[in-house]
Amino acid sequence: MSRSSAAANQLDQAGFQNIACITSGLQKVKPGTFDSVGTTELQDAGKAGLVTVQGKISAVLGTVLVCAYLFITFFPEQAEKLLQFAPTS
């Protein structure tokens, strides 16, 4: 599989068979279309591992935001005092 039609043409001229060229982006490749090694889906291959990192960051950020919301909801006076300490421009 190639992400460049020029590379696919070169491989074809060199005698390789079963060459595929993705022109509409990896996001359009449905799981199971091509054989792959590992657990990462092909549409995530071009993201340089960000998919695995993003999941962890999203979970932490979501937890922080929910905790902040609950703190502001249940302790509004304390939240207001904390916000007064925040630097302003």
Rank of each mutant, 00 (worst) to 15 (best):
S5A: 12
S5D: 11
S5K: 13
A7M: 07
A8L: 09
L11S: 01
L11Q: 00
Q13Y: 04
G15K: 03
F16D: 02
F16T: 03
Q17H: 04
N18Y: 04
N18K: 10
I19L: 05
I19C: 01
A20M: 02
A20K: 06
C21S: 15
I22P: 00
T23H: 02
G25C: 15
L26V: 00
L26W: 00
Q27M: 04
Q27E: 11
K28I: 04
V29T: 04
V29C: 06
P31Q: 05
P31K: 04
P31R: 03
T33M: 13
T33V: 12
F34N: 07
D35N: 06
S36W: 03
V37F: 10
V37A: 09
T39N: 15
T39K: 15
T40F: 07
T40K: 13
T40N: 08
E41K: 02
L42N: 01
L42K: 02
Q43L: 04
D44Q: 04
D44S: 13
A45H: 03
G46A: 05
A48C: 11
G49M: 06
G49D: 07
V51T: 15
T52D: 12
V53T: 13
V53C: 12
V53H: 10
V53R: 14
Q54P: 01
Q54C: 10
Q54T: 03
G55A: 07
K56S: 09
K56H: 04
I57K: 04
I57D: 12
I57C: 08
S58T: 07
A59P: 00
V60S: 15
V60G: 06
V60I: 13
L61Q: 13
G62D: 07
T63L: 14
T63G: 15
L65P: 03
A68I: 06
A68N: 09
Y69Q: 10
Y69A: 11
